[in-house]
Amino acid sequence: MLGNISLDMFVMRKKKSSYVIALLMFGAAVVFSLIEKVTMSNGSEGADGTFISVFTSNVSSCCLFFGIFFVMFACTDLKNGYIKNVAGSVSSRMGYILSKETALAVYILLALAVNALGAVVGSTLFLNGIGDLDASDFIVYIAELYVLLLGFMSLIVFFVFLLRNSTGPMIIAVLLGTNLFGNTFYRLIAMLLAKADIEFNSNYISVSGQLASVRPGADGKDILVTFAVGAAYIVIFNFLTWCAMEKKDIA
């Protein structure tokens, strides 16, 4: 397992897309700072010109980049056939998947750090710098984001190994990363439920909905729901991936 993680970390270091995606996130944070400045100068509401405002806006939009990278990384071995060199040598197929997820988990942390750095640079250049930052709120927020992104990653990895291609998972990554799916499908469900006099927002318990709405300083209940949703996605989709991998042969 350690050898497998080492392999995946090495491959991640060698992949250009690892750097391109991180650079895009950094650039997006700087651009968001500029947008924030313009929004503030127009006197629009909701823009407060702080680091945290830039960071939260950027992270929500960067879910798309995360989704794309998850697909690209998880799919590489399947597409180039490298999986045949490795999968037979590992004692369990799930070990092979978990090592990929470990590498991606490290990448998420690094990418969040790059996002933060971009937001710091952008807010220093165009706004009022970092400003007042409630460290404890920010740490809880980062932890929520991290768990949600791990849940999102587990879902994407499942679809990659279920479908064994990149097209389907990429479409899913885009739909969820941009929360298009949540804005349409879940809204439709809410409308149908409303007809039966049931008020329930299913987007609230979806990882994409949570990623789009998670903010620092949330109340205890919301934080709990966020962690529960992330953890549930991690457990459920890893179990499903295990089922898909154990049953299927390596093509």
Binding site: L2, G3, N4, S6, L7, F10, V11, K14, Y82, N85, V86, S89, V90
Partner: peptide, 8 residues
Amino acid sequence: KAKAKLYG
């Protein structure tokens, strides 16, 4: 090297 990492 990538595969060699698997075996350490």
